[in-house]
Nucleic acid binder design. Structure first.
Lengths: 396, 396
DNA sequence: TACACCTCTGAATCTTCCA
DNA sequence: CTGGAAGATTCAGAGGTGT
């Protein structure tokens, strides 16, 4: 389900029922018409918050009433993420503490990115702040894990530890003095500083909307704070990144914006076959992992030419076989081996290849025996397929 | 010059002259006992700041008067850094905007560190905030530089760039069309997210004071925001880290604290400044990073924990086998299979693994038959080894 | 309900071991 | 003896438990 609504979210929200939304993300526009310097202060004057806050009042009020509505429509298990302009973090935090309550404050997330330098005197601003509040203590949360630090040793991951008589932590040992294995630990729980590359100005993902966020950022928020099928709302949806990310993660999405252009843009991004968005996303992710493509994972120490625009093959080796090209196909994720072979066979015929390779990545069962296959096609297990095969056999 | 004064900084500061301090760092104590619960709001009530701020008012007032005094004693070229408790950032920012002015706001510095984890539901808090304000536009600042990111094009560092007639940035070229080398650039200007290790439980630097900061953090602040011989003030000096860092950086230092213990501790640290000669800090993370980026290539769709500090294994699978860990080693480039097995075997014994994997990446010949090998070790071909094997056989 | 105490954890160190 | 690798230890912070 996807809804993109035109209008001020304050009005639009009135029509929504209480407790109907699972997750809210918003990046409200920041405005400040009067940055008036308040009276000069000499310390003798009576201290007053009211005066201090005057300059931000208008913006705060704008946000306040919307936060109230957002809290109303949020489910009791729901979460809200507010992306702040760097000049508004303190205002946002203050209001959220008031509307949602300090007890529901979960995290101040720092989105950290490397950026081109400028010649400004001072430190290069390289982060933005996102506040994470829940509606109640009973909020949805899925823990993701990071890798351990380089300095952490294996023993801590593998060995059980207890406290001795003096209350000190030591490795547990059995009656023979041997250490005891613990359950394998999954890694370190995700922390609140997220290094995610800023959308590169040239990235195709960019659609020309001013404050567009990387999909990776939104995906992570959606993943930790909601489940599949949940309803995700972005009341200031802009170019619709939140909705695209939500759709990719199989959530129901609702967007609102007062700009007609934004609505159009969002709709067109949502309408576009998810696949193309997915591809762009995949590229973004691969760049993030510093890996060029899937092909590179398998053929990293073999010389090859990647093939982009052919549905049958993914690469051609630079080496030849009896003066014919050596073709390579990687089995796709939801593809059976026979489908893969069919695709590859076509290319084999057309290119008159005398030796070609299919890389098996999963064990979706074959419907016919392998030896009936065109003998020019060799099936090779991906390394991880090899693992899975052995482990499956071992466990049965 | 070192002065450590006992008492409330508000009173002590009165005796200081206007414009006499170059740099101020403070980490004011946060009062948590005064947090009172706010009334429930339903949106119908008239909006008012006063209500929102009531609970924090006392704390804000406490800070406010001290900020006023601190501004007074600060030189016109001076800077102030305020280290915030995670619950007080918004209050501090609000007050600083008022006292020093939004125009003097220079940076929100994020101190980011890795830390032990806990079982908390939610994201692991791993950062603290430091606000950096100057007194005037004409503030002292020394730019430090980081290394370029790995993805930066070397050309951009080495070649001179100009703008062409269309205003686009291009590489400058001499009359022969060759690019021109630019002056070597120093690196990327320091940004506002600082990854500095948390004071480790084992660090010698640690003196047991609750909120003790790493000296490296204070050194960096002192270095970017003041010159040798300048006067550095910490009005809540606690264990005296600021003064120790200042002394190490050849600044004149003044500390204040209301606790007699803190003063004693500070004095003793100044007499004998200890800075951790940390291995990590000296050699950097890379010194610990043994894992080939290769691991990701082979295990990309298997869940694993990379292992850095063990020469026998490169990863542990998150899956277990009969309650024992599943270890993985990738054959190294110039390593025979038997050497690899030897390395892995050691780890298998010590970790008492009942199933482990060796990924074969080359065909340096074995000197003995594989079946003599410890049967807990399974050898799996890397995908590209599979290719090579078949191609070699085909060609002979 | 309040709270004292116990448990679990991982980064970075210190210590020991071994080639 | 020496240097590096492996192993052991420390501490804080949050949750859980029991009185």
């Amino acid at each position: 389900m996807e809804k993109v609504l035109l209008g001020d979210c304050l009005k639009l929200l009135k029509k929504f029922e209480n407790n109907s939304i699972d997750l809210i993300y918003l990046d409200p526009p920041f405005f400040t018409n009067k940055v008036q310097k308040l009276k000069t202060r000499d310390g003798s004057k009576e201290f007053s918050y009211k005066d201090i806050w005057k300059s931000n009042e208008e913006y705060a009020e704008f946000l306040y009433y919307r936060f109230i509505e957002l809290k109303r429509v949020l489910k009791d298990t729901g979460n809200i993420f507010v992306h702040c302009d760097k000049n508004s973090t303190h205002i946002v935090k203050t209001l959220l503490d008031d509307v949602f309550g300090l007890e529901q404050f979960q995290s101040e997330i720092i989105w950290y990115y490397k950026r081109w330098s400028n010649s400004r005197k001072g430190l290069l601003p390289s982060h933005q702040t996102i506040y994470f509040y829940s509606k109640t203590k009973d909020f949805k949360f899925k823990t993701l894990y990071n890798n351990y630090s380089e300095t952490t040793n294996v023993d801590q991951i593998l060995q059980k530890r207890i406290r001795n008589n003096n209350g000190k932590t030591v490795y547990a040992r059995d009656e023979n003095g041997n250490t005891i294995n613990s359950d394998i630990k999954k890694g370190v729980p995700l922390n609140d500083v997220w290094e995610i590359p800023y959308l590169n100005p040239k990235a195709k993902e960019r659609v020309g909307y001013p404050t567009q966020k990387p999909i990776l950022l939104l995906e992570r928020i959606i993943e930790i704070a909601s489940n599949e099928g949940d309803i995700v709302l972005d009341p200031f949806c802009g170019s619709g990144t939140t909705l695209v990310a939500g759709k990719l993660k199989k959530r129901k999405v609702i967007g609102m914006d007062i700009s007609e252009d934004a609505i159009k843009l969002t709709n067109s991004r949502l309408d576009n076959p998810i696949k193309s968005e997915s591809n762009l996303l995949q590229k973004g992710k691969d760049a993030y992992n510093n890996v060029d493509s899937q092909v590179e994972k398998f053929l990293h120490d073999i010389e090859y030419v990647p093939v982009q625009r052919n549905s049958g093959i993914d690469a051609i080796l630079k080496e030849t076989y009896q003066n014919s090209p050596i073709l390579v196909r990687i089995q796709k994720e939801h593809e059976t081996i026979e489908e893969a072979i069919k695709q590859l066979s076509k290319a084999v015929k057309v290119k008159r290849s005398k030796k070609s390779f299919l890389i098996r990545i999963n064990d979706i069962k074959l419907l016919f025996e392998l030896d009936t296959v065109d003998h020019t096609i060799e099936i090779i297990n991906s390394t991880s397929y090899g693992f899975k095969e052995i482990l499956n056999n071992a466990n049965t």
